[in-house]
């Protein structure tokens, strides 16, 4: 019984894999993702190379926003992430990883900034 049901799974292969939304996408998904990615890549390059906004700080914040948007686009349309795949374990692993990534990045910058400030005889100019 168990062997038969397992073999049945193997025969199906990925034919009915859409139920868990795992790693499958449609042509429309990929094209949507691609077009959005091209737009979200082109705009930051134009902003920086053409110095459109005229303010480095604002440009920096804007292109970071574009990067985050493009990462989300890639996750949804190329990696086919959703909250239901693998019973929610993929999204849980992703959230956990993002938490660690944010702690690593923000923590390093925070600690090292204070280290620089406190160790230097006079204030270093940052940047």
């Amino acid at each position: 019984m168990s062997a038969a049901s397992k073999a049945g799974h193997d025969d199906h292969g990925h034919g009915h894999g859409h139920a868990d939304g795992g790693s499958h996408g449609t042509f429309k998904d990929y094209m949507t993702g691609f077009v959005l990615s091209v737009i979200l890549t082109a705009i930051p390059f134009i902003l920086v190379m053409g110095n459109v906004l005229g303010n480095d700080r604002i440009t920096g914040i804007v292109i970071m926003g574009f990067a985050v948007a493009q990462i989300v686009v890639h996750m949804i349309y190329f990696l086919h992430m959703n909250t239901k795949s693998e019973g929610g374990w993929t999204i849980l692993a992703l959230i956990f990883t993002l938490t660690l990534v944010i702690i690593t990045l923000a923590g390093s910058l925070w600690v090292m900034y204070h280290l620089n400030t406190n160790m230097m005889p006079q204030h270093m100019h940052m940047g």
């Binding site: 049901s5 199906h12 868990d20 795992g22 374990w89």
Partner: peptide, 13 residues
């Protein structure tokens, strides 16, 4: 048992 998962699922995870 309902067939909502295929054996490859654990590899992907």
């Amino acid at each position: 048992a309902k067939g909502e998962h295929h054996p490859e699922g654990s590899t992907m995870l």
